[in-house]
Simulated scan of single mutants.
Amino acid sequence: MTWQMHGDPMMWVAGIRALYLQALHPRAVRGVMQNSDFRHDAWGRLMRTADFVGTTTYGTTEAAEKAGARVRKIHTMLRATDPDTGESYGVDEPDLLLWVHCAEIDSYLQVARRSGFRLTDAQADRYIAEHRVSARLVGLDPDSVPANRTELAAYFAKVRPELAATPEARAVDDFLLHPPTHPLLIPAREVLWRRVAHLAYAALPPYAHELYGRPAPKPSTVTRRLRLTGTVLRCVPARLRWQLPPKHILRAMARLGPGSRPAPYKLGPQVAILDRPGEGGTR
Rank of each mutant, 00 (worst) to 15 (best):
T61A: 15
Q270R: 02
E279C: 10
K218P: 00
K247M: 10
E87N: 08
A216D: 10
V271T: 12
P161L: 01
R48G: 13
H101A: 09
L267S: 06
R17F: 00
A197M: 03
Y89C: 06
A263Q: 04
D37W: 14
R39W: 14
C235S: 11
L24S: 10
S88K: 08
R251K: 07
S36I: 02
P167M: 00
R70A: 14
T85Q: 05
T81I: 14
A169M: 02
I186N: 13
E162D: 15
Y108F: 15
G281A: 04
P9K: 09
R195Q: 11
R251F: 03
P83R: 12
S115E: 07
M10V: 14
A112H: 15
T60S: 15
D106E: 15
A42D: 04
G44R: 14
I249R: 00
L163V: 02
D92K: 09
K66Y: 09
D82R: 07
E168T: 04
M77F: 12
S144E: 06
P237Y: 01
T181D: 03
H131Q: 11
P142F: 02
T56G: 10
P9Y: 07
C235T: 01
L233E: 01
L228E: 12
R79W: 08
R234C: 03
M1K: 11
R276Q: 11
R225D: 08
L109F: 11
R227I: 04
A122N: 06
P94E: 05
R132T: 04
R251W: 01
Q123R: 01
Y155E: 01
P167W: 03
V172W: 04
Y212L: 01
V196H: 00
L137Q: 03
A135I: 00
G86I: 14
T2I: 14
Y265L: 00
L97G: 08
A202E: 05
R17H: 12
A153D: 14
D95Q: 14
E104G: 01
A216Y: 05
V71L: 04
L226Q: 08
H131F: 07
Q270Y: 02
R225H: 11
L19R: 08
A208M: 05
E62P: 04
H6V: 10
L250C: 03
K158G: 07
V91G: 11
S144A: 09
P205M: 06
K218H: 14
D121S: 10
T231D: 03
Y58A: 10
M1R: 07
L137A: 11
P264H: 01
A129E: 03
T282N: 12
T229F: 06
L177C: 06
I16H: 00
A153G: 00
E151C: 00
R149T: 02
T229C: 09
A154F: 05
Y20S: 08
R234T: 09
L96R: 05
R239T: 08
Q34K: 15
A203E: 08
D106A: 03
N35W: 12
R114V: 02
E93Q: 14
R17S: 06
G257E: 02
L185Q: 05
F38W: 15
W12D: 12
I128W: 01
A80T: 00
C102A: 15
K266R: 13
L163A: 03
W99E: 05
R239A: 06
P246T: 04
T229R: 05
D121V: 05
T221I: 01
G139V: 02
P83L: 13
V13G: 07
A80N: 01
Y201N: 07
G281N: 04
G278T: 06
